[in-house]
Design a protein around this nucleic acid. Structure first.
Length: 212
DNA sequence: TGCCAGGCCGGGT
DNA sequence: ACCCGGCATGGC
């Protein structure tokens, strides 16, 4: 394990402790949440998932069959509901048609080839794909998000303009392929970004990563 | 009140 | 290959 990354992980873990991600009850629920949380506060997503449960349609077949307009009305609280309803349909159609609603079957596939298939779905970008692979499938792929980018660049650990694949490779080239480690690492970056490393506060006061 | 939130797509340069 | 506008709700 790379020394600097080990240090970063240890400091964040010491400051915040285990984050217990992903806060979903099943691999399928994680897949749904991964789409709904795109650029959206998790609290709004939880409300939408609660509504889907309440309506009794938090299942692959139900979402596969429900009319688009009805689905979008149920997920309204998650924002971008018209867009997301379509994206959910795209993902679930793939899941139902290729794997017969069987997550075990889907995640038995080679990680890299499944990643490419997910990325080919309209509405599934790199972060959503990696979130599904890591948090629903326990596959060792590193999830990058706006928080990761901000924390790492603000502390001069990566270039300001590094893109998604660059940042992902930065971590995966330096860490063992350990899904539990990647899980906690990403969740800790999110916690960091919400507490010390906020967007509108350029200086991270009392930040656990100061003086690296 | 305005800004932000666990992105991604499509059209224009 | 970038850059940007659009998508939308709810919390602080």
């Amino acid at each position: 394990m790379n020394k600097k990354l080990d240090d970063i992980f240890r400091r964040m873990f010491a400051a915040f402790g285990p984050q217990h991600w992903w806060p979903g009850e099943s691999p399928f629920e994680v897949m749904v949440g991964a789409v709904l949380t795109q650029n959206t506060n998790w609290g709004n997503v939880e409300r939408a998932i609660g509504r889907l449960k309440q309506e009794g349609i938090l299942s692959p077949r139900a979402i596969y069959e429900i009319p688009l307009s009805l689905l979008s009305s149920y997920i309204q609280s998650a924002g971008y509901y018209n867009i997301k309803a379509g994206r959910l349909k795209n993902l679930i159609s793939f899941f139902v048609e290729e794997y017969e609603t069987d997550t075990e079957k889907m995640f038995a596939e080679d990680t890299e080839s499944l990643r490419q298939k997910l990325l080919a779905i309209k509405g599934i970008g790199p972060e959503t794909a990696d979130s599904i692979l890591l948090y629903a499938g326990h596959k060792p792929t590193f999830v990058v998000d706006a928080y990761t980018q901000r924390v790492m660049s603000r502390h001069l650990l990566i270039a300001e303009d590094a893109d998604y694949e660059e940042i992902r490779a930065f971590f995966m080239d330096r860490l063992p392929p350990d899904a539990a480690l990647f899980n906690e690492f990403h969740a800790l970056f999110v916690k960091m970004g919400k507490t010390y490393c906020k967007k509108n506060i350029p200086l991270c006061q009392d930040c656990p990563l100061n003086g690296l």
